[in-house]
Each structure stands twice: as C-alpha cells, then as structure tokens.
Design a protein around this nucleic acid. Structure first.
Length: 865
RNA sequence: GGGUGUUUAGCUCAGCUGGUUAGAGCGUCACAUUGACAUUGUGAAGGUCACUGGUUCGAGUCCAGUAAUACCCACCA
C-alpha cells in the first residue's frame, strides 16, 4: 500500500479530480444512467456579470447550488446545473470606458461605436474565461455543454422573438415620458437603478405672483406651467382654477392653479410650482389636469435654446445665475441654508440624475391579456407568490416581493447604451416597424438603442433551455404552449439561489417574462442568501480593501474549506461574516477527515469501504452505537437539506465525524478492530459529506473504492439499525470515562500516569482502561475511593477531600433544586392535564434519575472523611 | 414617512411546530503528546437568552410595547 501523506493537499488533487468528473460526462444529465421516468432537478446559475472576477457572493451561490445539485444527483434525479454569464450592458460599458480613459485617455465617442464595441468584446472574452475558470475551481458540477451567455447568438434570437411577441400583443410600446436620465452615461435608468444620496443644499422661498413658495430647483421655473395646492387647503381655495401672470427672469408667463392630492399642505407654504417636464410628481399632476409640458433641459443636462440667455448652461450654473437675477428683481423672499434633501444619482457613475421627457420603449405591466385569464403580468406575478407556487426562503421575502410588485410601474426597457441587445425596430418618419428584418422599401433606419440588461436576464431560465425553438403551438389553439426537448424536461427549474438585494431587479422580471413566454413559473423556490461581510460585519469593498478573493482562499486552504466556511454558520436571508480564520478552521476539519481515512488504511492492511452491514456484523456495544448513530445522522441530514438548512445539516455531520467517530469510535476500534463497521461508517460519511466538500470526499472514495463518488447512491437511513438501548448504554460508558478524566484533571494527575480503580463487575473494562487511562482491579484498595458511577466502579487515588466535598456539595444542591422544581411540576394538576403524555413521562424518568444521582452523591459525600 | 431583520458566553453564531440542568466554534485557563491528526487530545471557567408587560401548566422560542443596531422601499417639490 502506498504511503498516504499526513495532510490533504487540496491544490495537488483538485484540478485532476475536476477533470475526472468532467471526463466522466456525468455533469450532463443525458449521460446519467437513469430510468426514463426519473424526475428532473434543475438549477440555472444566476449569470455573473462579465464586468469582473467572481467574488464571495458568487462563491456562496455556487457552494449552495452545487450542494443541492450533487445531493439530488446522488438521489437519482435527472440533474442539470447550467452555467453562463451576463453581458451586463451598462455596467460593462462603464468599466470599459473607464479603462480606456485610464489607459489611453480617450472616451468612447473618440473611438466611435464600432471600435468601442470591439474593445468591449475583447475585454469580455478575458473576464468571461476567468469567471468560468473560477466556477470550475469552486467545484461546481456544471454541464458545460449547455453553457450560455446572455448576449450570444442563441440568446439574441430569443430576445428578438420575445420583444416582437410582446410588441404584437401590445405589451411593448413607445411613449414620451419623463425618465431618469443620466447626462454622463447619456442613457435612461430604471427606477431601481437610481440611487438617492443625502445632500445639504438650499431651499429657496420665492415670490410667485400672488404666492410665496419653496423650491430647491429655482432654475426649473423656466419650465413651469402650473401651480398646485392641496384640494382641502382653505387658504388657497379662491385661487384654484384661475390663471395668473407670473413675473420671471425671462419675462412674464402664465400658469393655471390646480388642486391636487399630491401636494403636502404642510410643506413650505403649501403651494408648489409645477414643472411637468422635469419632475415625476409634477408630471403626474400635469397628466391629471391636462397641463402642457415645457421641456427646458436637454440630454446633456444643459438648459435648452428656449431659455434665452441661460441656454447652454448646466442646471447648476443656471441655478446660480437665475437666483442672482431673481434677487435683483426682488423675487426671492428668503433662502433657507442647510436644507437636507435626497439627491437622485446614477448607480453606475454617481452623476446627478435629470428627469427629462424622452421617447422610450416601455413594457406595460398593467395591461390585461386575454390568454392570461384577462390578467396583467403584474397580477399574475403577484398571484404565483400569493398562492405559493413560488416559495421564498426565508418566507418573509414573499411580502417584500409582493409589496414591490404591487407598486411597479411600466418598465422602461430602452437604453441609450452601445453595448447590449439591439432592438428589432425600424423607423421611417413617423412610421414604426417591429420585426426580425427591416421592412421592404427605402428610408427605413434601425433603432440605435439597446435593451435594458434585465430584459435578457429575465429570460434566463428558458432562453438557456432552447426557447423559442423548443415550443410549439397546436393548430386551432394558439394560446396553448407545448414544450419540447430540454424545455420540456428541465423547465420550470427547481431553485433560484441569489442575494436578496436582487429580488426587485431580477427575480420579479424573470417571473413576469416566463409567465408571458410559457405561461408558467421559472422556478419553484427562491432561496436567498445574505451578504458576505468581513469579520467586523462591514461590507466588503474594493475601496476599503477588506475584500476576500475566493481564488486566493482556494489556493491557500482548498475549495472544500472555502465551501464549508460559506455554508456553515449562515442562515438564509441573513448576512454572514467571513474571515480567513474561519476558512482555516474548516481546512483543519478537512485534514481531520483525511486522517480518519489515513487511520483506516493504516489500521488494516486491506481496508475496504462497505455499503451495508447486517446485525450479525455488529459485535460490540460500540459497534451498535456508532451504526445506530450514523443512521440517525443520515435521517437528520437529509431532513435538514430538504428544508434548506444546510448549516444545521453540516453541523450535525461535523459533530458526528469529529466528536463521535474520531474521538470515540476510532479509539475503540484500536481495541476491537471491527473493520467491517469502520468501513461501513466511512462509506456513509463520505457520501453524506460529498455535496458539502466534493473534492476531498471524492479523492478518498475513488482511491479506496476505485469508483466515482459523485454518482454513487445517496445513503438511506436504515431504521432497523437504530438502537436506542445501545445508545443509552454507550452514553453511560462515556459518562464513566468522562468522570474519571474529570477527576484526573482536577487533581492534576498526568495523563501519562495510570491510575487505579476497583470494580467487581464491569462491562467494557478495556475501553474504560484505555480511554480513561486507569487500571481496574477487582480487589478493593485501602486508599480513599471515589465512586464514579452506579455501575460499581471506584477510583482510588490521592484525593483532596475538601475540594471533592465542595464539588459534591454543589452537585447535591443542584440536584435538590432540580428535584424540588420537578416535583412541584409533577404535583401540578394543570400540567398533568394539559401536557402531552410524553413530556409527563419524560419528567417522571428524569425525577428518578435525579434521585438516584442524589443518593450516590450523598453516599460519596458521607464516605469522604 | 412606511416596512423588514438582528439583539443568546469575551468574539462569531446555532437553537426546527413552546417541553432535558440553553449549545457549538474561536478565544481564555490548566494539563498532555514517539503516530491517524500539533491542522492534535483531555478537562475547566464563562450566559437574568436586550428591556417591560402579556398568553400558557410551562416562554430563548408565541403576542404587545420599548431601546439599540442593520437594511429595504417611498420620496422631500
């Protein structure tokens, strides 16, 4: 037998093990030898953005998803884990822009669209390769033959089809609306791409015809077309419905006074100026009262030609000038300094957002569709969460999802970004054509915008499984969708595992788009992990430099340790802290497991893993105990995994492996040498651990058995081997040994020294002698004795009587308290009446135990003189 | 302004539908160590389960409120 190294060297084995798995072909469910009716189990990897390398959040996703995947593969499911990446249009464009600026000092406009996109693709190929390599390093059992990218040819086709279908059903439309506009990115932003930052500014109280009103943006006065007050505000009732001439820096202009609920009578003077073109609330007011819109700010964030001498100034410059001019004209009542308000900024570049009116494409979320039972996408998307078709884990996120969906407005899907999905739209003067190819005839130009990145990622679960090629409709029943191929076999998927911060951006869109395309849900469960924070509970970020790079950790401690540390001690939806020390401690555990194997091979020259034992194979109490325990652990681990309690499952396994198997059974095996049981236990724990730490378990298993663990059958808990009586007896044995060790420790007796004890009749004598390092004689010695158990074992040694008395006194007092508490409970008629029988019996048994213990302790106390 | 978490040992966290003397890891202290493993073993100390009420035979667990803290949403004209 070749020498097995002392420690498991992860770096040495991991790559070759991964290659072994890949070569086997079992990552692809088509190669699994399964009965035809085997159920499928699918997870599509949330595609990481190709902007950067993977971080711990991704690592955590892969650790959890791959655990589920490996578990179900072993359980005999037709298991598919499909990998891919996301083009992340605006984010990627910004990264490349920054890079260009830094390296060559040029902007994308200097390069032009075509060359710029070439740069993007060059960048993308690099990061994409890095990401996929990292995903392999994490041990993810991905089916690489089905790898996808949100902007590859297959997905482009799917996206076009989706857009055209939605347009034809009237869900996608073009409209002039005010949008969040980033003057730097020169693009619209979705509501949730806007970040609010607190800013200390000024509040200007201005004289406004018959009113005084407060505004933080006096420059927008040039675009005012109305004044609004609250309908029930008595102060201003007489003004409502009338028109007034207002003096302004560019001369007089006319506004109408309207009453609208949106006005807060407590803010300022209770009067607001209405700028429909540059404020969302004002725009809504204007729509309700048919007030005209006057645009004064352009796409560069500058004042337009209609602003006279202010034309061309940025809004900030214009504000200063206009305020100065208004002051000269006596139009400023007063200026409130240090006014705290929230400023809308671009989540990508941080520039101030200007709301401006613009022609954009929208997805109607409230439009009712006949084929959806006359319900809108929004209604259907809420319905599937309410009726539990989609379950969120933890459950509380269901509410967050529903709340957000309820308030959802039409989704602006066009972006003025170069990098992204082109929209299949052509224009000719006022005509619009939507379709695969440009219409016949001259003068048609293609739309230059691209789609919001979430449009294509919203289609991720089905665009990766062959949609639209793999759907058919029946003649005469155009609404009935028939799935074929992968789509039929793997959709809906089972789980989406992602961070909770992405529910609104992504999860909701996937649900709506899948309902539209297939009339079904994209996934059954949404498992949400928290954020991975540093050891002080701070967010990891590049600027703080407190980030942990998963690849560094993998090369230092191995993938198994990294996966375990991301899994353990974290609960769904809650943030988890991670430190190098934590990963290190799990590396130690991997080594422990390795050494358990090492012991096994060294203890017997022809050690083999054994998948089944019979009762006759269990020779001793210890055998019965460990076999009983492992079968309980199988049951518990399986239960915990099915409830998504991975941390709990891992904890139980870890305790079993380290505290029960290594610390007790292995020591006893050195005496009893039942290799069959040892082989059985190791076989079981390797299988149970495999989804948590695939590499080390595979290495041991395939070395020992020359079979691939990844596709072995998951163990089943054998109820017949669970032996509660043996467990109780073994526990007593542990208590005796513990008590002797305790005595030894409290009297500072070296472990090297064998102490003597007397007992007339005792079982498992050798075990006690070895583990507690005692020599048991049948003759009573003349020395002082300490009785350590009711089984009749006495330990004789040099004993500090006073010390022992004190500890016995403490124990006696403790027991007496318990007994009085318990007897009061047992005397309580209400307790006897309402508590379940089990609990009552349990308490009665406990009572007996306490009393016996108390008796022996009292005897011992009296014996001490 | 509305909402959701979290609060349990020095630190990091478990504790499933209420029912053993509330657990673990790290850290601390004491001891051990020629082999499966110093990436180790044995033992010990350490907790009014944030606070105040309530429900219950019984509350770390359920309810109401308070406080600290983290986050989400809305948005401030």
């Amino acid at each position: 037998m070749p020498e097995i190294p002392k420690t498991y060297e992860a770096n040495k084995y991991e790559d070759e093990i991964y290659k072994l798995w890949e070569k086997s072909g079992f990552f692809n469910p088509d190669n699994l030898k399964l009965p035809k009716n085997a159920k499928s189990y699918t997870i599509i990897l949330p595609p990481p953005n190709i902007t950067d390398k993977l971080h711990l959040g991704h690592a955590s996703t892969i650790a959890i998803e791959d655990l589920l995947i490996r578990y179900h593969r072993m359980k005999g499911f037709r298991t598919l884990y499909l990998p891919g990446t996301d083009h992340a249009s605006i984010a990627t464009q910004n990264v490349v822009e920054k890079k260009l600026l830094k390296e060559k000092g040029i902007t994308r406009h200097d390069l032009g669209k075509e060359k710029f996109l070439k740069e993007v693709w060059k960048f993308l190929r690099d990061t994409q390769a890095t990401i996929l390599n990292q995903a392999k390093k994490m041990g993810g059992s991905f089916d690489w033959s089905r790898e996808a990218f949100t902007l590859d040819e297959t997905r482009k086709k799917a996206v076009r089809k989706m857009f055209i279908d939605m347009y034809n059903e009237g869900l996608v439309y073009r409209g002039k609306r005010i949008v969040n506009w980033c003057p730097r990115c020169k693009s619209t932003l979705a509501d949730d791409e806007v970040e609010y930052k607190e800013e200390i500014g000024k509040l200007y109280w201005i004289k406004y015809g018959p009113f005084i009103l407060a505004t933080s943006r006096p420059e927008t006065k040039l675009g005012d077309t109305a004044v609004a007050v609250h309908p029930s505000d008595k102060r201003y009732k007489k003004f409502v419905g009338k028109k007034y001439k207002i003096p302004g820096v560019l001369g007089e202009f006319e506004v109408m006074v309207v009453a609208d609920r949106a006005v807060d009578p407590k803010f300022g003077t209770g009067v607001i100026k209405v700028t429909p073109a540059h404020d969302f609330t004002d725009n809504e007011i204007a729509m309700r009262h048919n007030i005209p819109m006057k645009q004064i700010i352009n796409e560069d964030g500058r004042m337009m030609e209609n602003c006279g001498k202010y034309a061309g100034l940025t809004t900030k410059e214009a504000r200063e000038k206009i305020v100065a001019d208004m002051e000269k004209m006596g139009l400023i009542d007063h200026i409130e300094e240090n006014y705290v308000h929230n400023l809308a900024t671009c989540y990508r570049c941080g520039s101030v957002i200007e709301p401006i009116p613009s022609n954009q494409w929208f997805l109607a979320v409230d439009k009712k569709l006949k084929r959806l039972g006359n319900k809108s996408l929004k209604e259907k998307a809420i319905e599937v969460a309410k009726n539990g078709k989609i379950e969120f884990i933890p459950f509380r996120f269901t509410k967050r999802y529903i709340d957000w969906m309820t308030n959802l407005h039409d989704w602006c899907i066009s972006r003025q970004i170069w990098f992204g999905h082109e929209m299949p739209i052509w224009y000719k003067n006022d005509e619009i054509y939507v379709g695969e190819k440009a219409p016949n005839g001259k003068g048609w130009t293609k739309d230059q915008d691209t789609l919001d990145t979430w449009f294509s990622s919203g289609m991720w679960t089905f665009s990766t499984l062959g949609w639209p090629a793999s759907v058919k409709t029946m003649a005469g029943k155009p609404d009935k969708i028939i799935k074929t191929g992968d789509l039929a076999r793997f959709h809906p998927t089972q789980v989406l595992e992602t961070g909770y911060e992405i529910i609104t951006l992504w999860v909701s869109r996937m649900i709506m788009m899948t309902i539209f395309a297939l009339g079904e849900i994209p996934f059954e469960n949404v498992y949400l992990h928290g954020m991975i924070l540093d050891k002080h509970g701070k967010k990891m970020s590049k600027s703080k430099g407190n980030g942990i790079n998963p690849l560094d950790m993998i090369s230092k401690f191995g993938t198994d340790a990294v996966r375990l540390s991301l899994m353990m001690g974290s609960t769904p939806g809650n943030d988890a802290k991670l430190s190098e020390e934590k990963i290190e401690s799990f590396r130690n555990f991997v080594t422990k497991l390795w050494n358990i194997y090492r012991y096994c091979t060294s203890a017997s020259s022809n050690f083999i893993l054994i998948s089944d034992v019979r009762k006759e194979d269990l020779k001793s109490l210890s055998d019965k105990w460990i076999v009983s325990r492992v079968n309980e652990v199988i049951f518990e681990v399986e239960k915990n995994i099915s409830e998504y309690k991975f941390s709990l499952a891992g904890e139980k396994l870890q305790k079993f492996t380290w505290d029960e198997l290594a610390d007790w059974y292995l020591e006893i095996h050195k005496l009893e040498k039942n290799d069959k049981v040892l082989g059985y236990i190791l076989d079981k724990i390797l299988k149970l651990w495999h989804p948590f730490m695939p590499f080390v378990t595979e290495k041991i298993y395939s070395d020992a058995k020359h079979k691939m663990l990844m596709v072995e059958k998951w163990p089943e808990s054998d109820k017949k081997l669970i032996d509660k009586k043996a467990e109780k007896e073994f526990q007593e044995l542990q208590e005796i040994i513990g008590k002797i060790r305790n005595i030894r420790s409290s009297y500072h007796i070296d472990l090297g020294k064998i102490i003597s004890a007397t007992a007339n009749k005792i079982s498992n004598k050798e075990i006690i002698e070895k583990l507690a390092r005692v020599k048991i004689f049948s003759e009573k010695s003349t020395k002082k004795l300490i009785k350590v158990s009711s089984l009749g074992l006495d330990v004789a040694e040099l004993i500090d009587t006073e010390k022992e008395k004190k500890s016995l006194e403490k124990e006696i007092e403790n027991l007496e308290n318990l007994i009085s508490k318990n007897s009061a409970l047992l005397a309580n008629k209400n307790f006897l009446k309402s508590a379940p029988k089990e609990i009552v019996d349990n308490n009665k048994n406990k009572m007996l135990e306490y009393k016996t213990k108390l008796k022996t302790n009292k005897e011992l106390f009296n014996n001490l003189r």
